[in-house]
Design a protein around this nucleic acid. Sequence first.
DNA 1: CCCTGTCAAGAATCA
DNA 2: TGATTCTTGACAGGG
Length: 323
Amino acid sequence: MRIGYPCVNEAMDCSSGNTFRLASYSEERLIAAVTANLACLRRMLEWNVAQGLLFFRIGSSIVPFGSHPINTYSWQTHFAADFRAIGDYIKANNLRVSFHPDQFVVLNSPSPDIVQRSIQELVYQGSMLDLMGLDGTAKLQIHVGGLYGEREQAMIRFAQVHATLPEAVKARVVVENDDRLYPLRDCLELHQLTGVPILFDNFHHECLNHGEPMAEALRLAAATWHPTADGVPMMDYSSQALGERKGKHTDDLVDERFREFLTHLHGHDFDVMLEIKNKEASALRAVAILRELGLSAAAPDIPSPPLTLPAVPKARRVAKAVG
DNA sequence: CCCTGTCAAGAATCA
DNA sequence: TGATTCTTGACAGGG
């Protein structure tokens, strides 16, 4: 079992999401942003390895406007060596990475333009994994999409578009149950239609389900992953923020909820992405809990117990703190 | 320096 | 039809 967190490390002084406004697009700015983003990504992965965090979701804007027509720069060629070096590091350290294209990727939209843009975004993000030299176990995680007042028809559209995806993309796409529109049962139906693996989200399942107990839901989702082609099933973990709107994630890992969740696994292995506001801090606690239970897998020998590195405050914060 | 409106992209909900 | 929410940070312009 690997533990991960998404996109941002709050204890570090760099971001892999440097970007700029479309209106100020220039090749110079693009190159500067990608250079900085890849350097930071590398540093975050190294930090993660040192802490025993072997799963990581890479942010979508490593290459600003990566699928936008304005971006005609051949970044794939220009940064090929950098991507490859990062991929080598990932493989050498038994890391696993993924992407989660955001809400604008909607494969089942009735609009052909939206579908086309969505595919281009998947091609962009998938090509980064290709450039890293990673196999099909590095995934692109998306939701089913909209309902449009016709659930079955909308699901069929997803399947039809899925069938047309470039093979390189299709091998990486996984679909996640969401908390409002498409629960696990619909994802299972889509798996039947397309073979797409299901990335299970426990919290979304708590919000929207057909009565499947957690342990059963985990078993059903895990069974949609091909052991070698897809790898260990991935899942997102979070829990309800008490006293907040339904569906709101907690700011911090609730240890007892996490321990309780682990009891439902019954020996199924998952790589777990913690969708919790304080990012790596919670991920470190999760690792500690797993070690305590003897469930921590992947990393051979992790040295010292996880410690919280002193945060290097962002420039902004320094200014505030000082005066 | 600081504050704040706005940002490529979608969809559902509600007024 | 239009504003709001999801979800979130940070860019960028103006004070």
